[in-house]
Nucleic acid binder design. Structure first.
Lengths: 244, 244
DNA sequence: GTCTATAGAGTGATAGAC
DNA sequence: GTCTATCACTCTATAGAC
């Protein structure tokens, strides 16, 4: 074999250099977006520095600016990325054979979900809605996302109500708006005070909107917390910022 | 008359010194809170510096720290201040003689209001809810506010439904949660895309929750905007931060 | 395309005079 | 109680080496 240095697998920083530049570029972009999603969702956009995102992705801030131009660009790209994903509120694995009531239950369970990864993303989504109110550029992207989500939800709801012979509170498009509003509003209150929004209450509200005759609902099934449930969040790390 | 300097009405900075220190202290506190409300609501808490608040109140940042200890303390004091005020969502000037339907209309009008001062405060309220999700200290205050608001709303709703012989989707306390959720959710979507949430849609949703037989609802009364209504916000000042 | 290094600006908070 | 002055620190974004 010739004496030439055989090509190394990594450069001096351990970065894989075997693949094409295009592959590495896409990889870095994906890493940055994933890190940004995680950190922004956990701590809020303003509380996370560009350096922190880059570091979490195994890169430096320079890479962020090469890819997205600015922190704002990163936020917008992140919104765009998640567009094709599980963005719609009415996304839930429901069997078409289930009763409309249990399908609603599945939707709610999806929104109020165990509080895993979805809950964090939900928090970020809320923040972006807020940001959209003050930043037209963000507003455009969120509006587009929302319109797409609404179309999907409307079709879905149309099928359900037709099949169940329900008398919904509005036409499918309007009903999609109402259902989304109720779901996000309930999720918001539930984040603050879980006891205030028992599952059966949420289901009763949804049933009323879509026009299903709700069951009498025991309604006292869960104690209403309201006062200092106030879990001190043991183990939560100082909760103030992730900086470089 | 004696030759002594007569007491001046203001000191070298134009600050009134006739009143007692206690009065001036209260005045400064009120000024700071008013300025903070205005600026935080308009631009977001993180985008407004302590110096900017102090300057808008005709004081300096030192005064803020003397009164509230920290920026966070200012935010909390602001929440507390607004507690006794018009904080409840169901606050609306309605005549008891009005029909339940028109009372709901008044409530919605109050929430979706012309977009004046209330709309700005609403934005701040949203931000504080979001902040509460990450900061237990803020969460406590917001939770207390919310509980009080819910009690008030529940009593009010109880009266309405009883008088109208409606069949609400839940008991008064639960109904208060549902109505609040729908209202805030609709307000949120309306901020982003006003055309997506026509008044009659909101009213139909509310009627469904409280159990009033909603009118057939023309429902096509307003064009659904969805796409680029996107008013470029003429006259809005750069919208990025109010710093010192 | 990614890094290092740094400019340039701004922040929250504190000490001490008045 | 309020102000002035300043500390110690952080941020975003850019320039140039590799």
């Amino acid at each position: 074999m010739g004496p030439g240095r055989r090509p190394r697998d990594t450069d001096h920083r351990g970065v894989d250099v075997r693949r094409t530049q295009e592959e590495r570029k896409a990889d870095t972009r994906a890493r940055l977006l994933a890190a940004a999603t995680e950190l922004f969702a956990a701590h809020g956009v303003d509380a996370v520095s560009v350096d922190a995102v880059a570091e979490a992705a195994g890169r430096t801030s320079g890479a962020v600016y090469a890819h997205f131009g600015s922190k704002q660009g990163l936020v917008l790209a992140l919104l765009d990325e998640r567009k094709g994903s599980v963005l719609t509120v009415l996304q839930a694995e429901v069997a078409v054979t289930d009763s409309p009531a249990s399908q609603l239950a599945a939707v709610w369970a999806n929104v109020a979900g165990t509080g895993g990864e979805d809950a964090r993303w939900d928090l970020l989504e809320q923040e972006l809605w807020l940001r959209a109110a003050r930043d037209p550029e963000v507003a455009d992207v969120v509006r587009a996302r929302n319109a797409e989500s609404r179309r999907y939800s409307a079709r879905r709801l149309e099928g359900w109500t037709a099949a169940a012979g329900a008398r919904p509170a509005a036409d499918p498009d309007g009903l999609a708006v109402l259902v989304r509003a109720l779901l996000t509003g309930l999720a918001q209150q539930r984040r603050l005070d879980p006891g205030a929004v028992p599952d059966d209450l949420a289901l009763a509200g949804l049933a009323a909107l879509v026009g299903l005759a709700g069951p009498p609902a025991p309604s006292t099934a869960t104690t209403r917390t309201t006062t200092s449930t106030n879990r001190p969040r043991r183990g939560a790390p100082g909760h103030r910022a992730v900086r470089s």
